[in-house]
């Protein structure tokens, strides 16, 4: 399959990329890892006049803790996230996520920024970032602006990014002591989108109760879903089996899946409940709450 014709630009700096985006507006798309965009163009589900490849711009691939944030460069490869010791030891939820995205070959090209900016509710990082309370940095012609992740996903394949902006950094608050997270995904086979998946990030207080809980779901609605009701329910409670089970129920209520080859509405909602409960349990365990 061959994409419809387009022009390709490989700017060497971010300002050049932004100038091209300003010039072509809606008729341009940013090419990052290309593992979602190129299949879409090949299948002719999408078309663009100009591809702006950010692959040759230095300084967009990094993973480092700095100040109050873990900072991930927008073009950081999923494979880099997966093999990062910092991520594995300090952000297990991100490690869990990276290793179930597509397959190892795709992860050598695919990028974290692309996974978010594509706006696909089937992608895995959105739920993780919602659970972590992340924010993204969008760089445009007028400079940078910071977008809280809960305001980022507007609809199916629609995000708060403007056509003249590039997602340059993801910022994740450094978790306090006694924090833990997990991402659990049900997939039919390696490389498939989730039938359902759940991301949980928990911080425990000194008395062993939940100080903060982040919980979000993948591919059970037109956007990634933040299970706000379940999060609120958990705050201040002891994370025992009954409480986590109730939180899972509430998360499933927030889901609005549609039926497809991966399952019926009822099945997906039930899987969302099971995965949310299990992800919470694992997050609590990793937070040191047994």
């Amino acid at each position: 399959m061959i994409p419809a014709s387009f022009d390709y630009h490989a700017p060497g700096t971010l300002p050049e990329a932004l100038a091209l985006l300003s010039k072509y507006g809606d008729d341009a798309k940013v090419l990052s890892g290309g593992q979602s965009l190129l299949p879409l163009l090949k299948l002719r589900l999408g078309q663009t006049g100009h591809l702006i490849d950010i692959g040759r711009i230095p300084g967009l691939e990094y993973i480092r803790e700095e100040g109050d944030f873990l900072r991930i460069g927008g073009r950081t490869r999923e494979s880099a996230l997966e093999s990062s010791d910092l991520v594995r030891t300090r952000y297990p939820i991100l490690h869990d996520t990276a290793k179930v995205i597509a397959d190892p070959l795709v992860r050598n090209m695919a990028t974290v920024g692309g996974n978010l900016a594509h706006g696909d509710p089937g992608n895995d990082h959105p739920a993780t970032m919602l659970a972590l309370g992340a924010q993204v940095v969008a760089t445009g012609p007028k400079g940078e602006r910071v977008i809280p992740i809960e305001q980022f996903f507007l609809g199916l394949f629609r995000t708060a990014l403007r056509p003249d902006e590039v997602l340059t950094e993801i910022q994740i608050p450094v978790p306090p002591a006694r924090s833990g997270g997990a991402y659990l995904k049900l997939e039919r086979k390696v490389g498939d989108y989730a039938t359902a998946a759940a991301a949980a990030q928990v911080t425990l207080g000194s008395g062993g109760t939940v100080e903060r809980a982040g919980l979000a779901l993948t591919n059970v609605g037109p956007t990634p879903i933040k299970a706000a009701d379940a999060e609120k329910f958990l705050a201040g409670k002891r994370p025992d089996a009954a409480t986590l089970g109730e939180a899972g129920q509430r998360a499933a209520k927030a889901a609005s899946p549609s039926a497809d080859r991966r399952g019926s509405v009822e099945y997906k909602r039930e899987m969302a409940r099971v995965l949310a409960t299990r992800a919470l349990r694992l997050a609590v365990e990793r937070a040191g709450g047994r």
Binding site: L105, N108, M109
Partner: peptide, 27 residues
């Protein structure tokens, strides 16, 4: 498959295995 699934087209790009049906030649 030509749809980023099967890996028959795998080549090494700067040493990393990638699916060459999902990379532009110009990249």
């Amino acid at each position: 498959c030509d749809t980023t699934h099967c890996g028959a087209c795998t080549v090494l790009l700067d040493g990393q295995p990638v699916k060459s049906c999902t990379v532009l030649a110009v990249q």
